[in-house]
Design a protein around this nucleic acid. Structure first.
Lengths: 153, 153
DNA sequence: TCCTTATTTGTATGTATGTGCAAGTGATAT
DNA sequence: ATATCACTTGCACATACATACAAATAAGGA
């Protein structure tokens, strides 16, 4: 083959979708593991618990129906039953029966839960920002993608 | 305050890192769940199993040390012991003792495993591409980020 | 050198946990 | 009544962590 086209400096990396997906998964796994570890160590709380508290805090009424909470945290109903049980055991939330529909159950955040969330959220945000920044430095292409989402700094 | 700076047409969406991270997590959760479901239904195989087979196929020697495999699939060493046990039970791989280091164990893919992977990988790639495309359509900003990584089409 | 002992390495097993699915229960709606 | 809804419970499973074990390697002492 005479005169093969000179390879451009930046070979556009062939977009192997599966390989790219794996990179994304490894990113999320590393960051999530770090978040979970830090939250557990510094505040004695799990990721699911933390996020559930976050959604409860964000609720104007300080409470959410079990199914709503399930949707928000991305767990199924049965998992949320147990999650709220754990929050209850830690005194971060309690279960309140719905007055007008006796099937319904509200998960309500307590003051203790609020305080725990306030405390943990500083750690969470900081750890998350740092972790993403770090990942971005190791992989500029990833950094660009994260920046496009507004996930950096 | 007189003369506040006129708000530009595109308010740069305030980059709440945590909220963005949640979007990414929901994306991965949805896609991974879909992949897992389709793989399980059409090929009777789990995601971890599929990915382990992928790494074994990619190995020039068709085998990997347990710890190597653990690193690649992003699982704990003990989880890989059980993962390979499942692959073994399904006749997709077998365990081979390392000759020069009797502590070492190789996980070796079988022809059956190879065939299963070849078959499942078509489903996997297709499902993944479709799912990402779909997610991208629902969220243009996400689409841009995915495109930056070469994860689309 | 050879033997003994300690440390490290590679993997396996016991146990606990969080999760999903399927089935169950009681309340509501049609 | 019957079906549907909101949630809970029983069960199974994949995973992580701590521990155990066996092989390899290192360190001394004769």
């Amino acid at each position: 083959m005479a005169h093969p086209a000179p390879t451009p400096v930046h070979v556009p990396p062939v977009a192997d979708v599966a390989a790219t997906w794996q990179r994304i998964l490894l990113l999320t796994a590393r960051v999530e593991n770090k978040l979970a570890a830090v939250l557990q160590r510094r505040h004695g709380i799990g990721l699911s618990e933390y996020r559930a508290l976050g959604h409860l805090v964000a609720s104007p009424t300080s409470e959410l129906r079990m199914q709503e909470l399930a949707d928000k945290v991305g767990l199924n109903q049965s998992s949320v039953t147990r999650l709220v049980a754990r929050l209850n055991a830690a005194d971060f939330a309690y279960r309140d029966l719905c007055a007008d529909d006796k099937r319904g159950v509200y998960a309500v955040i307590t003051d203790t839960g609020r305080a725990k969330y306030a405390e943990a959220s500083r750690t969470y945000e900081e750890t998350l920002s740092d972790a993403l920044k770090e990942e971005g430095q190791a992989d500029p292409q990833l950094a660009a993608a994260l920046a496009a989402l507004g996930a950096l700094s």
